[in-house]
């Protein structure tokens, strides 16, 4: 599903060039959940961004399904995000001008995969029935993240990239949210790569990747 090979990425800073990722290679299969761990600043977010095509890589290869990200132009990378890859962020990144219902259906409608009954089932399973008419600002952090998860799964993507999805949530809420997400991954046979600092949550995943010094430890 996801094939990363000898990936390299660096940034220019006022202090000079910093090599964030120095040659990573790994694979994730459909239906697999993988936790990505490492110290702050080790490049976890960068890795997720380059896989999603949000940022360009310096060298190596990223293959999502049959598409090689580094060979795609911006429009094609946008299409990959629209149809194959979905992101969940620590800050939730919901669209503040839309209601909960509008947010959940937004990505699926964009991808032309809106399925009302599937959305309803997600809403029920994530306990969002009473919140549909509300706006993001009227929700707690846990509720917002459940909306973000519902939005992601409503699209039925083949790859989900989650960047510290529970970083703003308490332990109990984190557990509940991650358990739900992992169940949905198994059910939809998507692949999940989740950056996290929480060993406890990471251990719930099928596999853990540890990033250190720009390489897998």
């Amino acid at each position: 599903m996801l094939h990363v090979s000898n990936l390299k990425k660096s940034y220019s800073t006022p202090q000079g060039r910093v090599d964030v990722i120095k040659g990573l290679s790994f694979d994730i299969a459909a239906g697999e959940t993988v936790a990505l761990m490492g110290e702050s600043g080790c490049g976890k977010s960068t890795l997720l961004h380059v896989i999603a095509g949000l940022d360009a890589i310096d060298a190596g290869s990223i293959q999502v399904n049959s598409s090689k990200i580094e060979e795609l132009d911006e429009a094609a990378r946008a299409n990959i995000r629209r149809y194959d890859v979905s992101l969940i962020f620590q800050q939730f990144n919901l669209i503040t001008s839309l209601t909960v219902e509008g947010n959940i259906g937004f990505e699926a409608k964009l991808a032309g995969r809106f399925d009302a009954s599937w959305q309803n089932s997600l809403v029920t399973r994530l306990g969002l029935e009473d919140l549909l008419a509300r706006y993001p600002e009227q929700l707690s952090g846990g509720q917002q993240q459940r909306v973000a998860i519902a939005r992601t799964f409503a699209t039925k993507p083949s790859l989900i990239l989650a960047d510290e999805p529970t970083g703003n949530l308490d332990e109990a809420t984190s557990d509940a949210v991650i358990d739900l997400a992992f169940d949905l991954v198994k059910e939809t046979q998507a692949a999940l790569l989740m950056a996290t600092h929480s060993r406890r949550l990471a251990e719930k995943a099928d596999r853990i990747l540890r990033l250190k010094g720009g390489l897998l430890a």
Binding site: Y11, V18, V20, S40, G41, C42, G43, K44, S45, T46, H49, L54, D55, A56, E74, L87, F89, Q90, Q91, N93, D163, E164, G167
Partner: peptide, 13 residues
């Protein structure tokens, strides 16, 4: 630049 847009979502590198 895409890297600047991506920063919106980043809380670390």
């Amino acid at each position: 630049p895409a890297s600047d847009l991506a920063k919106v979502f980043a809380h670390e590198h």
